[in-house]
Design a protein around this nucleic acid. Structure first.
Lengths: 191, 191
DNA sequence: ATTATTAGATAGTGATCAATCACTTACTAA
DNA sequence: TTAGTAAGTGATTGATCACTATCTAATAAT
């Protein structure tokens, strides 16, 4: 059973990879299945041998994208020390943003698509990521694990936006090294 | 000079309001100018008397959306006391999300649209909002104003997502009342 | 050698959409 | 009364799209 470049399992992933690129660059609704096919070096109708509809292809692309993020975070959680956990999760996220920018752009698009199947996939992805982070923070004995998880996700969302619209100053104020300690002064004097 | 329902200035805003709804609900690229026209109670070709292209209509819709947010925040900044500034900005944002959800959904969409004119409008909107918040924090003598601004925007982005995909638990961990103080313990023991 | 199966392409369809055009109606000013 | 204009529409068009139906060439099993 020779696994050459033409097995249908390879073609399937070829198409998904092409779709991630084209959807991210062009926008899901404006992107055409012909563009996806061209990027995957096959004819346009052949896409429909593997995905019965364009939406099914989008769902497969989202699945790839969320799986990558979930698997990556799980790796980090397994190997990182409690003290370095959050820093390494952030580093891992930055790696994903660098190496798989299109997958992030696709996730962002899916957040505003109102089709129920897409929303459900997006919800499930977020839920699972949040659960992994939250559980890891708890097991690392990080206090206010819920709030820390929320802030981790929030900063992630802001990074996505800043990156997508090429506005790096949006991220300014991240990680100055002693932010929390000097904020403390403020809060102790305020309340 | 009686201001009846047929002045061209009214028609223009009618069309923009309709476009905000239709674009938000259906997605900009999938939405049709016929749908916008129907919602504005005019014929489809008449849309093009006011907006030369569909993209020009989107830009006008984004302008309305960003202006509302900017004007709202400027009002708050003018009237709020330094101690209540951030809390009132948050309240104002929640009001906008409640009363103008479609405008937020449109802004979210515009973040992933790669057309240069749209990206520029989105960048300018974000820049101006950030500048207002940052300057207000500084004038209120809030320490680490840059970091606080970034966190304000970041939480806003997460709220947008949580609302758009109907996943409220994503926001869990917001405002427990003493988050920073107990986080402090952790950091002082860690570093 | 023959047949069955897989991998893929060509050709096409009905539907849809942004944008244009030609036209009407109704009001206003000289 | 006439000339001009603002407001608005129905019909159309060229392009595009998701999706289908049908064919072909190669490979593999019998």
């Amino acid at each position: 059973m020779a696994r050459d470049a033409s097995t249908s399992v390879n073609r399937r992933t070829d198409i998904i990879s092409a779709a991630i690129e084209v959807f991210a660059e062009t926008g899901y609704y404006r992107a055409t299945t012909a563009q996806v096919a061209q990027r995957a070096h096959i004819s346009q109708p052949y896409v429909f041998r593997f995905f019965s509809t364009k939406e099914a292809l989008l769902l497969a692309a989202l699945e790839v994208s969320w799986s990558r993020m979930i698997d990556s975070f799980q790796q980090v959680v397994k190997s990182a020390s409690p003290e370095r956990l959050e820093a390494e999760l952030i580093t891992e996220y930055e790696k994903i943003m660098e190496n798989h920018r299109n997958e992030i752009l696709l996730q962002m698009q899916s957040q505003t698509i109102q089709e129920e199947a897409i929303q459900e996939a997006t919800r499930n992805g977020f839920r699972e990521v949040r659960q992994i982070i939250l559980q890891a923070f708890r097991e690392a004995r990080i206090p206010q694990a819920e709030e820390r998880t929320m802030l981790f996700l929030a900063r992630g969302m802001l990074c996505n936006v800043a990156d997508a619209i090429s506005l790096p100053e949006l991220k300014e104020g991240q990680g100055d090294g002693r932010g929390l300690l000097s904020l403390m002064d403020f809060f102790m004097n305020s309340y």
